[in-house]
């Protein structure tokens, strides 16, 4: 009996322990959000959006990084979406799983997903900035982020494509449709919500990336809005980094303000992804 009592006591203690570890994560999340809101909220007003950055904290704003981020993720999406979905279609619909080449592509994608983002920055610096001569431009940054988020888009698109029921495909083939007609008419429409969900999450990742763009962009004091893909740029996370490295705490608070805007954008993207996912799941049911 005492043995059972002891074991139950251990169980209870362990229950409390693992509950506390879970609580720790949630606690950190709330502290982090509170810390950032406390520092940054007071800086957010109209001027914060319309001003460029400045040597004086009170005159500084996020006009350039906000536009820079929008430029970067738009161009990134234009490249990454078709390449990612096309790759996934090839792997799921066209490739022969037994072929060595297919295996290599799949293995390679999972390896790429584990490569640190800064290494992609170095790749971008070597290829896009210097070798292809695009310079420290939006184009170089967007191409680099494209390569970075490709594995995410490919893998999530593959999952979405896999979920298309065989019966649907066979139904279309039985009507004499060609492979591409089946893909275009059945597979893509059916898997599109899943593909979009994954792509939005990938874009959210690109929106928050800092390291590769610092390697590519370098310049963070930018006081103009980019007008073409060959212009220099800064982004919200780059601006956060830049302000955080300043010694004055006013700039740290500015960084918190920029983080708030960044988090709102990310949360918005995630919300859209969740709504899409729910709609998608309901349809499958």
């Amino acid at each position: 009996m005492s043995n059972v009592k002891k074991r139950k006591l251990i169980d209870k203690g362990f229950h409390i322990l693992v509950f506390l570890t879970t609580l720790f994560g949630l606690l950190i999340l709330s502290i982090l959000l509170f810390d950032i809101l406390k520092d940054g909220l007071k800086w957010i007003n109209i001027e914060f959006f319309t001003n460029f950055t400045s040597r004086f904290a009170e005159k500084a704003g996020i006009r350039a990084p906000l536009f820079g981020s929008i430029w970067i993720i738009t161009i990134t999406m234009i490249f990454a979406f078709p390449i990612g979905v096309g790759s996934a279609l090839y792997l799921e619909e066209y490739s022969d799983d037994k072929k060595i080449l297919t295996k290599i592509i799949k293995l390679n994608i999972s390896n790429l997903a584990g490569v640190p983002s800064i290494v992609f920055g170095i790749l971008g610096l070597g290829i896009f900035v210097n070798f292809l001569g695009f310079g420290r431009s939006i184009l170089s940054g967007a191409l680099t982020l494209t390569l970075l988020i490709l594995p995410i888009i490919i893998v999530s698109s593959q999952e979405a494509i896999k979920s298309v029921p065989k019966e649907l495909r066979h139904g279309a083939y039985a009507l004499g449709a060609t492979k591409w007609q089946v893909v275009k008419g059945v597979v893509l429409p059916y898997s599109l919500p899943g593909i979009l969900t994954g792509s939005i999450l990938a874009i959210a990742r690109a929106l928050g990336e800092t390291a590769p763009l610092i390697i590519i962009g370098a310049v963070t004091f930018i006081a103009f809005i980019p007008e073409s893909i060959f212009d220099k740029f800064t982004t919200l996370p780059m601006q956060v980094y830049n302000w955080s490295t300043m010694p004055q705490t006013e700039f740290h608070d500015l960084a918190a303000g920029a983080i708030i805007i960044l988090l709102i954008l990310l949360l918005g993207a995630n919300a859209v992804a969740i709504i899409l996912r729910n709609k998608y799941q309901n349809r499958i049911k």
Binding site: L207, G208, T210, P237, V240, Y241, S244, L262, L266
Partner: peptide, 8 residues
């Protein structure tokens, strides 16, 4: 949450 935020 992006790593830059954790850095901050």
């Amino acid at each position: 949450i992006p790593s830059i935020v954790y850095g901050y």
